[in-house]
Design a protein around this nucleic acid. Structure first.
Lengths: 226, 226
DNA sequence: GGCGTTACTTGATGTCCGTCAAGTTAAGTT
DNA sequence: AACTTAACTTGACGGACATCAAGTAACGCC
């Protein structure tokens, strides 16, 4: 179990809980269970029984799905503050996806039972959750459409700009191995390699070491078309 | 305004309302506003002020977004029973998307104000909505991943099989013009044309007239890889 | 520090598919 | 029914990208 104040800190990371009063947050923190997952280990695997909402307190998790043809598809990259398993909260079914920790990771879990109790007691939680899911739907819709109409080069350039903006610097280590980045962008490691080289030679970025990137021309990156 | 019993019929079409008791459904029906949209007209346009959840009572609506580069992207194809605008219910912002009726269409609208009132009064509605959004998130995640890793041919074959299964026949008119189908699948009309011809010559389907399709080998279609 | 494993790079080659262009069919209009 | 317009088809061509293959660099482990 987490120390209570740690649990509170974790709960406060989650957008759907942030705006609640201290009392409610404290109550939520009591319901939460901690789990630590080492780099490379699985948080959960496809086929497992799923009955908990998962909240990222710290770290990075790769959520993947194996298609019928056996190809691995990355559904999502969970970062600190993200949560996953919304659908699980209302249906008793097996997980379709597997989640592997890319870094040492700390997560908080809240069971379906507890969560359902919670939204009955606190309408604010339900409304916040609706809000969060609504936003996530919008994001996913936009992303799905973008995926249909953008090239790998565009998506990679976008990813670099976004990552720089999230990390608030133009000079950063890629948070993902290139092979995982390839999965995430729906391409191959070879293509990532070549595209980055292309960006380098055209002066948009500089590469150093295995995965250090420096963004030289953000506007230029945003205009990459192929 | 709809006749009350028409409104009730409309409300009952929506998954999030279906399981409610008659009283609540009737109350919901009172809040609902009807609108008829002719084929080719817009239900709403990007940039408009958005303050209503939209429910499809009948027809087909193409939801599109124009990217920075000016390319049109189809976000979604709304069918009878679908709803759109979830994010709008909690935020006061402009629509990012445009929605054009592909057939004569009947929709029901419920304002943000009314909906918020509703979920406060009836927790069941909130829970149903959470459920619906959770499922939609799962669907979208799966779709986004599939889009990253499938070819146009696979997506088209999939679409044909799904459409046949929804219409419950192997012999149907395409519900979409091929140019819209192209948008939906993220490709060009030319490619649709060629792929369908390919499917024809390999015996998977038969084409008749401009847009009539007969599925001959569903298993074969599901195994299409490129 | 040496060694094995994994990640990454680079090259060669093929193919899917987008685009341009021109022709054909179907639908709607007066 | 003729005409106009939009949807669709077909062909030619090129480019982005996947795949296969081989080499290089970095990491982890004893």
């Amino acid at each position: 179990m987490l120390e209570h104040h740690d649990a509170i800190a974790c709960v406060k990371l989650v957008p759907i809980f942030q705006q609640l009063d201290h009392e409610t947050i404290s109550a939520v923190a009591d319901l939460v269970q901690e789990r630590h997952v080492n780099k490379g280990e699985f948080v959960f695997m496809a086929g497992e029984h799923a009955d908990s909402l998962m909240i990222m307190a710290h770290g990075q998790v790769k959520v993947t799905q194996s298609s019928a043809s056996g190809r691995e598809q990355m559904i999502r990259l969970l970062q600190t503050g993200d949560f996953d398993g919304e659908s699980v909260l209302f249906e008793d079914k097996e997980r379709q996806t597997s989640a592997e920790a890319l870094t040492d990771t700390q997560i908080c879990l809240i069971t379906r039972q507890d969560f359902q109790k919670l939204i009955k007691q606190s309408p604010a939680v339900a409304i916040n959750m609706l809000n969060a899911l609504g936003k996530r739907v919008s994001e996913l819709e936009a992303q799905a459409a973008a995926t249909l109409t953008t090239s790998v080069g565009e998506r990679l350039a976008n990813y670099l700009v976004e990552t720089g903006s999230e990390l608030d610097t133009n000079d950063f280590d890629l948070p993902l191995q290139k092979k995982d980045l390839a999965l995430y962008l729906g391409t191959s490691p070879e293509t990532i390699s070549r595209k980055l080289k292309q960006f380098s030679t055209s002066g948009l970025i500089s590469q150093r070491g295995r995965n250090h990137i420096k963004l030289n021309d953000i506007d230029g990156l945003m205009m990459v078309e192929s």
